[in-house]
Structures are given as C-alpha cells and as structure tokens.
C-alpha cells in the first residue's frame, strides 16, 4: 500500500511534468489559431488586462497574451534544436571516447575538460555579440557550447559497461565491438541520453532567455526572453505592470520545472541505484 502510494507519487510528478510540457507545446504549435490578436500589430499602449487584451498591452500596444503564445514557439524551438545539437555532439564524443581508449580518448576528454571549466554564459555572450542577433545564431551557439557534460556522462557510462562482467564474457565468447555496442551499450546509454536531452532543453531555454534578456536575441522575433527584456527596459518593471513581466518569467519557469521533473523520472527509472535511494 505504502509502495503503491510512492509509485503514484513518483508518477504524479512525472505526469504533471509531461502534461505541462504538452500544454506548452500545444500553445506553441497552435499559436496562430488560438492567439486572440496579432502580437506584432501596434495599438494603444500600456493597457491593463481586460477581456480583449487578457494580459494588457505593452509599450507599443501589442497584445501581451498573444505575444506569450507566439513566444512559446521560439523559446521551445531554440531549446529543442539546441539540445538536439548539443546532445548529439556529446553522445558522439562520449561514445567514441569511451569505445576507442587511448590517444583519441585522451584528446577528446582533454577538450571536454577544457570546455567544462569554461564559463558558458560569458562565452555565449561574446560569440553572440559577434554573430549578431538571430534565433538561429543563438541555437548554434548554445548547441555547440553545451556538449561537454553529455560527453563526459556518456563516456563514463560506456566505460563502466565495457568493463562490466557481462560484456567481458560476451567479448570472451567472441562478440564483435559492433554487436556489443548494439546489444549492451546502446540500451544502457539511451535512457541516459534522454534524461540529458530533456535537461539540456531546460538549460538551452534558460540560456536563450538570458541572452535575449541581455539584448542578444532577435529584436523582432517573439520569445519569452525578449518579452522580459522589453518589460524590464521599457517601463513595465519600473511602472509595476506585473501582468507584463510576470507571465513570460512564469512560463519559462514552468517549462523548466516540467522538463526537470521529466528528466528526474527518466533518471530514476534508468538508474536503479538512484531509485533505491529515492524510495527509502
């Protein structure tokens, strides 16, 4: 009985996370149909929330609620695209380094170590400043900079699988590298990659928001980070117009929360040791 409740609780958090994420993705996909107004259209500025403008309007009279819906598109897109790029890179580096011990491993891990202690935000700022403001530049910068932690985790996982008893015995029976990779390594690495991917989406979204807030995003495109920037810069914050700056921040936070919950539950499922710890 107690166990059943525990399982339900674990599931509750996961399902809450998935539900929230699905809601955000739906908002992003259906934005053109469900947004009440065109978020680029100018109108009367600084309106309070009303039935026409659910969250009021900003400094140039654009509908904030519609901006929020459209903002989900870019924020999620950057998050997912950057995470896909960085996790793929990290997975390749990690798998190669773990499988080919020796010089290649040393080189790759050396590079990973160097990247790991590099301050990501300042480097991303520097690169974005040179590349100029654009959604795709942001994606590229985040995607290319965020791979080392994935690489490290995957490599150590591959190494521990390689050295485990069952792989040793498979090797002794004459199994090829490719077979071991498909049969033993990938099934153990995939859940880890999934958890890492979900977590990287969160990191990328936060990074996108930060860079946009600093003024390194596309000034025309709608994203939650840009909304926060304008609310902060153009009087929304100083004027106490909380309906302007609170919703985008809350949206980012809830998105990150849902992703974090999902990644926890994947990690918990894939690592029995962790599960044991959590259930005690």
């Amino acid at each position: 009985m107690a166990r059943l409740r525990q399982v339900m609780q674990g599931n509750k958090a996961r399902w809450a996370g998935i539900a929230m994420l699905v809601l955000f993705i739906l908002c992003a996909m259906l934005a053109p149909w469900i947004a009440p107004l065109d978020p680029w259209e100018f109108g009367p500025a600084f309106l309070r929330p009303s039935t026409t403008n659910l969250l009021g309007t900003n400094d140039v009279g654009q509908d904030i609620f519609s901006e929020l819906l459209y903002g989900a598109r870019n924020s999620l897109l950057v998050g997912f695209a950057a995470a896909l790029l960085s996790v793929s890179l990290g997975a390749i580096v990690g798998l190669v380094a773990g499988f080919r011990k020796g010089i290649l491993d040393d080189l790759l891990m050396g590079a990973t170590d160097v990247f790991l202690v590099m301050p990501m935000l300042p480097l991303a700022i520097l690169v974005s400043v040179y590349l100029g403001p654009s959604i795709w530049n942001l994606t590229l910068v985040i995607g290319l900079l965020w791979w080392p932690s994935t690489a490290r985790v995957i490599r150590s996982q591959v190494l521990s699988i390689r050295e485990s008893g069952y792989v040793e015995s498979a090797r002794a029976l004459g199994a090829s590298d490719l077979w071991i990779m498909r049969r033993h390594v990938l099934p153990n690495v995939v859940p880890l990659l999934m958890a890492k991917f979900v977590l990287t989406v969160a990191v990328a979204m936060l990074m996108e928001a930060s860079l946009s807030f600093l003024g390194l995003g596309d000034p025309i495109a709608k994203s939650w980070g840009m909304m926060l920037r304008y609310a902060f810069l153009r009087g929304g914050f100083v004027g106490g117009l909380w309906w302007w700056y609170a919703p985008p921040g809350l949206a980012i936070g809830l998105c990150i929360l849902s992703l974090t919950l999902i990644s926890f539950s994947i990690e918990e499922k894939s690592d029995p040791r962790l599960k044991r710890v959590l259930e005690r």
Binding site: A202, S210, F213, L228, Y245, G249, I252
Partner: peptide, 9 residues
C-alpha cells in the same frame, strides 16, 4: 526552475 533575474524582478 525560475530564471534568477525574473525572481529578482
């Protein structure tokens, strides 16, 4: 989960 600078605001 919440962005620090937003919490600051």
């Amino acid at each position: 989960s919440m962005p620090h600078y937003w919490l600051a605001m």
